[in-house]
């Protein structure tokens, strides 16, 4: 490196350059394209045919009952997923935080679903929840819990339940990871002091643990809400939005509009709505996480 020495400024620019180029070309540009496309009519079968239609695509989706149906179903799907993930996640993290021999094995196995490919688990779900030849129905019937096979994926409510279950299965580990990381930073002296004061396990949980977890939980919940709301693969691979359109969310709606209905403009307009929603979510996140204040402090 001698004889050829970059100034600090040059190094700084040099280091930033790849990021700026990549981000510009593959993030800013596509998002700008997506926004632009929302104002055009574009049928992928006629790629040379691009017509400006103004706000027509937006009018179209806002007048489409299926859009609103997808929207409210997305709320149901997100709400249940988040509540269950949070409760289970905190509960399991508490169990896994106990220092016992062999706990690492449990920890590994319980975090595992997070890295299982969605395709794998969706196919598995279709196999084990198959109403006719699935092992779940077989187990429930032979244990005498149910009398007749449950049509897990073919009634609107059960399909939504199955989809939520899948999401909970796959993403509860994320909550566990985050909560565990926080739990490990809580000084044990706090608990010891509380014990001395005669606080029971539940009191220790509500008085010490929960307040300590509050911050991380709020962040995790905001995050998971934004992601779950926009999830595509879990639903598409499990139910394709069915039966009927009972498990559509906005992402599946956008995909179907773009690919099956050949209206990429409408799909893009749906995408713009999703962006607006998630920007709102991000503002919430920034507020609750103290992300901005930290910045000012430096």
């Amino acid at each position: 490196m001698r004889g050829f020495r970059l100034s600090d400024r040059q190094v700084g620019i040099l280091f930033m350059l790849p990021f700026l180029v990549t981000a510009g070309a593959f993030m800013v540009w596509p998002v700008a394209e997506a926004v632009r496309l929302a104002f055009y009519s574009y049928n992928p079968l006629r790629p040379d045919d691009l017509t400006w239609v103004g706000f027509e695509n937006f009018e179209r989706i806002f007048n489409d009952p299926l859009f609103w149906e997808s929207f409210s179903q997305a709320l149901v799907w997100t709400g249940w997923s988040i509540v269950l993930q949070t409760l289970l996640g905190v509960g399991l993290a508490m169990l896994l935080h106990v220092a016992l021999p062999g706990i690492a094995v449990f920890r590994g196995l319980l975090l595992f679903p997070y890295i299982v490919p969605t395709v794998v688990i969706a196919l598995n779900w279709r196999w084990i929840f198959n109403s006719e030849i699935g092992i779940v129905n077989h187990a429930l019937v032979s244990l005498g819990i149910i009398e007749q096979n449950i049509a897990w994926l073919s009634t609107p409510n059960m399909a939504m339940t199955s989809a939520v279950l899948l999401n909970v299965w796959k993403y509860t580990p994320f909550v566990i990871i985050c909560v565990l990381a926080r739990l490990q930073t809580i000084p044990t002296e706090l608990y010891d002091a509380a014990k001395v004061d005669g606080a029971g396990a539940w009191r220790r949980f509500t008085d010490i643990t929960l307040p300590m977890l509050k911050e991380v939980l709020v962040v995790v919940i905001v995050f998971r809400t934004i992601w779950t709301f926009n999830k595509f693969e879990e639903i598409y691979l499990l139910t394709r939005g069915g039966p009927g359109t009972s498990t559509f969310n906005l992402a599946v709606y956008a995909f179907e509009e773009g690919m099956a209905n050949l209206r990429l403009g409408v799909a893009a307009a749906t995408g713009v709505v999703m962006i607006v929603l998630l920007l709102a979510g991000t503002v919430v996140y920034v507020r609750v996480s103290g992300f901005g204040q930290e910045e000012k402090a430096t």
């Binding site: 096979n149 073919s154 009634t155």
Partner: peptide, 21 residues
């Protein structure tokens, strides 16, 4: 019809028949 018919496509119809159901 089978209770799950509302999710049936090509595959499941054939499966149902070939499984004797």
């Amino acid at each position: 019809m089978p209770r799950a018919a509302v999710e049936f496509s090509f595959l499941q119809v054939v499966d149902q028949h070939v499984a004797g159901r």
